[in-house]
Amino acid sequence: MTVPRTSYQDARAWRRRSAGAAMAAPALLLFGLFGVVPLLGVMVLSFADWDGLGEPGWAGQANWAAVLTDPGTWDALALTIKVMVVSWLVQTPIALALGLFQAATGRLRAMLAILWFLPLLLSAVAIGLAWQALLDPTFGLGATPGLGWLARPLLGDPDLALYTVIFVIAWQFIPFHALLYQAGIRQIPVSLYEAAAIDGASRTDRFWRITLPQLRYTIVTSTTLMLVGSLTYFDLIFVLSGGTGGPGTATRVLPLAMYITGFQAHDMGRASAIATILVLTGLALSLVTTKWSGFTRMNSQQEGS
């Protein structure tokens, strides 16, 4: 190995660069192979004709023509966005309220916070199986005296199923977001509240004028996690709907539509086209949130990226 030893500085710069390359390579390799290559692969496959058994062949425009003219695709996209928006609307206020509650000290509060945290430890599959049995209209919770109003097909009625799914998602993820808010709230300087109290601000005023504005970065983080995360609600919906995205197509969000097309109807080409739509949705969403969070970061000292 010949090192250009024109000067001590050059040698050091070279060592620095080679060390940097060596450090950068493993992540690049791993992510490139299983992230970037499949990303390009899914786009290529969306033009392929492959039933999962034989060898992939060329399909030209056929998959895209079929997917784009299939109302099912657009329904799935609309459902995905609906899940995203409704989940945010449900989870954010509850998580914020719980975060406020948890942030204060006290034994009871700490104990409740631990209780709330538990769903986060369960896997989506465990949660799905538990809720599926729990919401069984005949043998589930609805059979308890006094809880008869639960004895309805919450997962079976096409008009209710999506909201039930959104509720179970919230049940799982609210603790995480409550935790983010709790941490955010605990970092608000007490002096701000003291000053406001001296000015005679009411409790509500203090919430709107101090707590919420001070939490804006937490809100951005939590919102971004929720929105991008909602594109990936696959496991839970898969289990809750018995792998069908049903009843009917009531909970068939994009990831499920992709899975069903690819691994149940065995049309990998079309499934790849749906997957590409999912990728594009993700990219669009991340552009929007980056822009939005960039906007809120205007007065920061340093660039995020």
């Binding site: 992230g35 696959f234 991340s286």
Partner: peptide
């Protein structure tokens, strides 16, 4: 960050 892992499961 924006790539949902579900989307690339086939490749």
């Amino acid at each position: 960050l924006a790539i949902p892992l579900q989307a690339v499961i086939i490749p």
